[in-house]
C-alpha cells in the first residue's frame, strides 16, 4: 500500500498572514440533478442539507458546497473519502449522476490572519470584500481556476488543482510578503 501524500506536504510561509497547505483532504465531486430525491436523501443521511446557490452547508466535519447548477463538492477527512464515495455512488446508482473521489487531484490552502482578504484581492478579480461567509466563490487566481470560501474567523481556504498547487502556493507566498499589505 502506497502512502498518500498531499501536493506540497503542508508547506507553510509566514508573511503578513500565514499561508499553508492543508495536507491531505478528501474531496468528492458529485454531478447530479440537485433536486434528485436519492441525492437529497443520501446527503441527509450524512447530516447535510442541500446548499443554496453558491452556498455551503456543514455538518460533523463535512463541508458541502454548491459548485454549479449540477455540481456539488463534498469535503471530508481524506481517509473517509472512499467510503463516502462508495455510499453516494450506491445511493445514486439508478439516477443520471456521477460521483468521483478527486481528493488526490486537488490541493487545499489556508490563508490565515486579519489581512487574509488583501492576499486574495491581489490574485483574483472577485469582489472579495463583498464575499459573505458561507459562500463558495469559484474564480480565477492569476492564471488558474480556484475556489475559496471563508472557512473561519480571519481564515480563507483555497481549493485548486493539484497540478498547479506549487504555482498557487507561490502566488500566495509572494502576495503575503511583509511590506506588501494593500491598506
Amino acid at each position: 500500500m502506497s502512502n498518500a501524500v498531499s501536493a506540497l506536504n503542508s508547506e507553510r510561509h509566514e508573511g503578513f498572514v500565514t499561508v499553508s497547505e492543508a495536507g491531505l483532504v478528501g474531496m468528492i465531486t458529485i454531478r447530479s440533478d440537485q433536486a434528485s430525491k436519492p441525492l437529497v436523501k443520501a446527503l441527509k443521511d450524512l447530516g447535510l442539507s442541500l446548499p443554496p446557490k453558491r452556498g455551503i452547508t456543514e455538518a460533523g466535519g463535512l463541508v458541502l458546497a454548491w459548485m454549479s447548477p449540477d455540481e456539488l463538492l463534498l469535503i471530508c477527512p481524506h481517509d473517509q473519502a472512499p467510503a463516502h464515495t462508495g455510499a453516494l455512488e450506491a445511493a445514486l446508482a439508478k439516477t443520471h449522476a456521477l460521483v468521483v473521489n478527486v481528493s488526490d487531484a486537488r490541493a487545499l490552502m489556508h490563508v490565515r490572519g486579519a489581512r487574509a482578504d488583501e492576499v486574495m484581492m491581489k490574485l483574483s478579480p472577485a469582489d472579495i470584500q463583498q464575499l459573505p461567509a458561507g459562500e463558495m466563490r469559484r474564480t480565477r487566481f492569476a492564471q488558474v481556476p480556484a475556489a475559496f470560501w471563508r472557512s473561519g474567523r480571519e481564515e480563507i481556504s483555497v481549493i485548486c488543482f493539484r497540478s498547479v498547487a506549487a504555482y498557487v502556493m507561490g502566488l500566495l507566498e509572494v502576495s503575503a510578503r511583509p511590506g506588501s499589505e494593500l491598506f
Partner: peptide, 11 residues
C-alpha cells in the same frame, strides 16, 4: 445566469 455571479471579462 447559471450561478448569478457578476465578474469582469477575464473570469
Amino acid at each position: 445566469p447559471c450561478c448569478g455571479i457578476t465578474a469582469e471579462e477575464t473570469e
